[in-house]
Amino acid sequence: MDNRVVEFIRGLRAAGVRVSLAESVDAMHAVESLGISNKEVFRSSLRATLVKEHDDFAAFEELFPLYFGSGGPPLQNALEDLSPEEQEMMQMALSALSGRMQQLLDWLSSGEGPSKEELEEMARRAGVEWANSPQEGQWVTRRMLQQMGFAHLEEQMQQLYQKLQEMGMSQEAIEKLMGVVEANKEALAEQVAQQVGQQIAEQRANRPDDLHGSDLMNKPLQSLTEEDANQLRKEVQRLVTQMRSRAALRRKRGNKGKFDAKGTIRSNLRNGGVPIELKFKKRSSSPAWCSFATCLLPCGRWRNLCCG
């Protein structure tokens, strides 16, 4: 579990959440103290120790189910309630199906599901390494499910239903079997989505810092892609937060400014050099970003970037 938490922290960092070593240690202590039996408590304890910004909660909530499961029901074994004869009938009916569908229905009825390696292989074939965002992850998931044969599943289940009826399996047993397979279908789709999401998060964690590696700094605003714009939005948001903090700090020297030695000497010449009036250098009160914004205004996209 410790390894999983460490991987999760790496995932958080890759998603832009700042987690220090001290905070990771706190998270480990919290898990040690509260255990992992209650998922909600486990989630709260990780969030209280790792995430210190309300804005980062979204990233946490997105990643947590990927690393620690979304709490959906696991795959069930549909065959355990069947008698040995009925199990044999099921095997025969399955063997009549084509290879891919046989495999899928086998996963769904036995409750075993594909192994981690099999899932990874399928994800690789579906192009998971090119996916960067949750939206692209959904696309990869859809492709994986297609590969598994989900598109023809309904049809095949109908066929299986008829075949089992022909073989003489009781109506009640067939209904029950199909019910479990139907529930397993949902669970398997969720498992696949979770695997894809986790793989994307891990890839993101292993990739070097996007912003500094990219040429975003030198790109003209007109040629920004949607992804670049999203990245810029994030940066602008960060800058705005920093500026808001700085404006709110209203430091004491902000009111008075720094002592201006030259100005004081100059203005006190009329007093025979006795420093009666003290002069202070005032800092400009208008933040730098006004001019920054003005120069970008003609581009029109600045507003879009700021307001999202």
Partner: peptide, 14 residues
């Protein structure tokens, strides 16, 4: 809430 309970408990524990 459960979250508040968890954090207060952790404050004592840690």
């Amino acid at each position: 809430s459960e979250e508040i309970g968890t954090v207060v408990y952790l404050a004592h524990a840690l």
